[in-house]
């Protein structure tokens, strides 16, 4: 059961990572990257590393996303 949950999370992680890499819409990529960070945070927590999970949630899903969004708002939304 625990293993199945891990595998599900890992598959989701790969899916979001590929989606981030393939997305031409930078806003969508930033949001997808935020969800990638959240899934990775769950995975860290599930593998017994709560310290890393907290860092991932605060920095990866929080601050980085906000900075990406501000940067996209200041520049262009679409990749050429």
């Amino acid at each position: 059961m625990s293993m199945a949950f891990d595998i599900f999370l890992l598959l989701f992680l790969i899916g979001t990572a590929l989606a981030v890499a393939h997305s031409k819409d930078l806003l969508a990529a930033a949001i997808l990257f935020s969800s990638y960070s959240l899934v990775l945070c769950l995975l860290w927590q599930h593998r017994g590393a709560p310290d890393v999970a907290m860092t991932e949630a605060a920095v990866g899903a929080g601050i980085t996303t906000v900075l990406f969004l501000v940067t996209i708002g200041r520049t262009k939304r679409r990749e050429k």
Binding site: P50, M54, A58, G62, V66
Partner: peptide, 13 residues
């Protein structure tokens, strides 16, 4: 669990 890096990110947020 936690520490300076995590708490600093929350305070910055």
């Amino acid at each position: 669990p936690g520490g300076g890096f995590q708490g600093g990110a929350i305070l910055g947020a």
